[in-house]
Each structure stands twice: as C-alpha cells, then as structure tokens.
Amino acid sequence: MKSDMSTIVKTVTDFLFGFIIIFGIYIIIHGHLTPGGGFQGGAVVASGFALLFVAFARTFLDKKPQQLYGLFESVGLLIFISLAFLGIYRTFFYNFLANSGGLFGMKITQGINPGYFNTAGVVPLMNMAVGFEVACGLSLIVYLLYRGVIEEGEDGE
C-alpha cells in the first residue's frame, strides 16, 4: 500500500474511467427520459471515483480533494432546495418550468414520442443537482476511508 497499484490496474483504470463517468453523466442528465436519475447516476460516478482512488492512491492523496468534494456536495443540495423554493408562489416543489415553452419547457403529446430532451421543467435541473450531491458525497466517504487505511499503514511500518 506504499505506492500505487500495479500496471495492469492502472492501465485498465485509464481505459475504463472515462466510460464510467460518461455513463453516469448520461444517466443523470437523461433522468427524465430513460430509467435512472440523480441517485443512480451519482452512484455510478462515485464508483468510478472509487476505482480511481484505488488505482492511483498516491497521486490523489497528495492532492487533498476533500474540501472540493464537501463544497460541491453542499452546493448540490442547496441548488436542489432553492429550485424547490422557487415555485413557492404556488406550492413547495411546484414545477414552474414545465410546459412553459422556455428552458426545459417543451410540451409533449400523450403516449409514445421520440423523447425530446428539452422537456420536464425543473426535473432535469433537480436531477443534476442531486446527482452532483450524491456523486461527491459517496466519493468523499470512500476517499476518507481510503486515506485512513493508507495513513494507518504508514504509521505501523
């Protein structure tokens, strides 16, 4: 545990990390069209970051990303709550952008349609906020546990 993992793990992580992150971001931003959403996509992104921590331990422990993760997690939750508050003139969690014609406000027809991206009002924005929060929060948990393991190992030897 003194240094990074072996070359095989590093090469496979180099190859796979981009695909995992892109897949997670796809699940997050297409949450209102395909199965999935903020939580699921955030979990996928966080598992990609966990792979990155395990493979490149040294590099990431020196960078100390926990402040950044904590900041982004709080920002995600704050965006979610403020989006819910913006519809307070009707009710809390009122979908004020849906069917308005503007941003994410395209009207769709009942039944089968091609799945337009520019629909569903605040739902995609909330998906992105929650995905941000979940991805950063779970990555922060894994990072802190892994840092504890490595520092414990260095103290013992």
Binding site: A43, S47, L138, I141, V142, L145
Partner: peptide
C-alpha cells in the same frame, strides 16, 4: 431498471469497496 442501476452501483460497487477498506 432504475432500481437495478442503483443496486448495481451502490450494492455491488461502493458497499463492497467500503467493506473491503
């Protein structure tokens, strides 16, 4: 399928990593 994605990401990926650590 949405529950399946959550289970595969959290149950099989992150929980295993946390337990092993």
């Amino acid at each position: 399928p949405d529950v399946a994605i959550a289970e595969a990401g959290i149950g099989a990926g992150l929980t295993t990593a946390i337990y092993v650590l």
